[in-house]
Design a protein around this nucleic acid. Structure first.
Lengths: 109, 109
DNA sequence: ATGTCATATGACAAGGCTGTCATATAAATC
DNA sequence: GATTTATATGACAGCCTTGTCATATGACAT
């Protein structure tokens, strides 16, 4: 039995939100170009609206993006305080310790 | 079509390695107690050996842990350079922006 | 209030991941 | 080299996640 029980599930859930190409694409896009409406994201990434909306809901739920009304549109912006340092750590990791991830489709186990 | 195509897949794969309770438990454990053999990890977490080995392979593949022989055992240690800052960012995020994740089982979407 | 534009929601099939079982390999001791 | 101990690998059923389709809601203008 674990000697000190930290609640682990929230961590796994949080990372699950990031473990998806579409959601990572959205985060990268928003982190580079700032707030965007759903349809702008769709156009930029060439993805369907419902597809993007579903994934934005997931990102919103995890506090990674925040929507704000602007007329009929909803502008989504990233949580810079979290996303920017996170991407920085991962950039560094991929470069230095996990370059193999660039040439594979599936996780080994 | 994306105006600037960054390779996104490696990011998603990397986070996928973290999007699992067992693997998060292992990372937390190793980050607190240092290097451990597979059987020690099993005992600490109360998990089956094959289960742990499978997940250690995944973590190793992603460069999050590194094994080293010690007699018949294999000692696994975390990549501190990545894991510690990563957990710090996420700790902070969960506290400030995603406390809802503490009381849910499934990601909303 | 009706129409239109923008976005969200619900449901579901297809595919992917997880944990477990059975089994293999690797190192050390006898 | 046979045995024991420690860990790894392969296969597979069950579950979860994904993207898509059909449809609903919300805001604005007429």
């Amino acid at each position: 039995m674990p000697s000190r029980t930290v609640s682990i599930k929230p961590y796994a859930l949080f990372f699950q939100a990031l473990a998806n190409q579409t959601r990572m694409q959205v985060l990268h896009l928003l982190s580079e170009k700032g707030g965007m409406s759903v349809s702008e994201i769709c156009n930029e990434l060439g993805l369907e609206q419902t597809h993007v909306s579903h994934n934005l809901k997931c990102l919103t739920f995890c506090g990674l993006v925040t929507p704000s009304r602007e007329g009929k549109s909803r502008i989504y912006s990233i949580n810079e305080q979290t996303v920017l340092p996170l991407l920085k750590v991962v950039d560094n990791h991929l470069r230095n310790y996990a370059s193999n991830l660039f040439t594979c489709d599936v996780l080994e186990r």
